[in-house]
Design a protein around this nucleic acid. Structure first.
Length: 262
DNA sequence: GAAATCTTATAATTTACTTCA
DNA sequence: ATTGAAGTAAATTATAAGATT
């Protein structure tokens, strides 16, 4: 969603994982804990209010040819030779090549449609290298992509997809962390609320028991100045009132109050 | 221990969107 | 202002592999 300026040909990306994560979330919600504002939505879904249309492929589907064009022009790049994957799977289920075979035979960037949707598993070494690269750059510019693909003996598209998925996983993980954090905050608030209710009840009871009977009027109608001890009632003018017990609206905010915040 | 089934992780695809030339 | 290419995020699908029965 956010163009990081990463793919400007003249700019070499050098973002750390954390900073890039923060950056790609800036338009949605902050991830850094100190500025975390729980009043913001978690945006678990529907950030764009997208109602997805799933009619492009009802049974296996039409797969866009891997042209390295990204998703944008998908419909125009649909391969004529595309086939339904499930059927394809049945037909060629016996032709299962190993990862290394796949690596070797898939040097080009295209012609994936003939293979259907075969899923390769990356080797540990490949995954490790990709993870290492991701630590340095959560997005790649075309040059980096090519370089990495060459190094891993993968197609650039595969490297690109890996990074897309990796970013998605990172974000999901962060969302889970945030969710847990909010749950804890909610629990803390509940406890605090219960405690305050209890305290209020006790204070009310104490007040009732310590006041002489003639003073035992509804609390909301009484005002008392703590210094002169004069009692008035709320029906009198506010200006002449020495003191009012009407509480100021105060909302406990655990995110500003470290003692109760989680 | 082998087969069937379930679950999980993740590669790959699709769609909708933004940015920029 | 419009258009198309290129890029991304999000949602989803499909599959490999491990866990369980």
């Amino acid at each position: 969603m956010v163009n990081h300026g990463v793919f400007d040909n003249n700019i070499i990306l050098d973002l750390t994982l954390s900073s890039s994560m923060l950056q790609h979330n800036t338009t949605k919600k902050p991830c850094n804990r100190p500025n975390f504002d729980p009043s913001l939505t978690l945006a678990l879904s529907g950030d764009h209010g997208i109602t997805k249309k799933k009619h492009a492929c009802d049974h296996g589907g039409l797969y866009g040819q891997d042209s390295g064009s990204g998703g944008g022009g998908g419909s125009s790049l649909i391969s004529v030779a595309s086939v339904c994957v499930k059927r394809e799977r049945e037909v060629k289920s016996e032709v299962i090549s190993t990862t290394s075979e796949v690596e070797e035979e898939e040097d080009e960037d295209d012609d994936n449609s003939v293979n259907g949707r075969k899923k390769l598993r990356l080797t540990k070494a490949q995954s490790a290298l990709l993870e290492e690269a991701f630590k340095h750059h959560s997005s790649l510019n075309p040059k980096q992509k090519q370089e990495l693909a060459r190094e891993l003996k993968l197609r650039p598209r595969q490297v690109e997809v890996w990074f897309q998925n990796r970013r998605a996983r990172t974000k999901l993980k962060q969302t889970e962390v945030d969710c847990e954090y909010l749950k804890k905050c909610c629990e803390t608030l509940k406890e605090e609320n219960t405690r305050l209710h209890k305290e209020l009840q006790e204070l009310k009871a104490l007040k009732q028991s310590t006041q002489p009977p003639y003073m035992q009027l509804p609390a909301a109608t009484l005002t008392m100045c703590p210094s002169c001890k004069r009692i008035g009632d709320t029906t009198s003018s506010a200006n002449t009132r020495p003191f009012s017990i009407t509480p100021k609206p105060h909302f406990f905010n655990p995110f500003n109050n470290p003692s109760a915040a989680c």
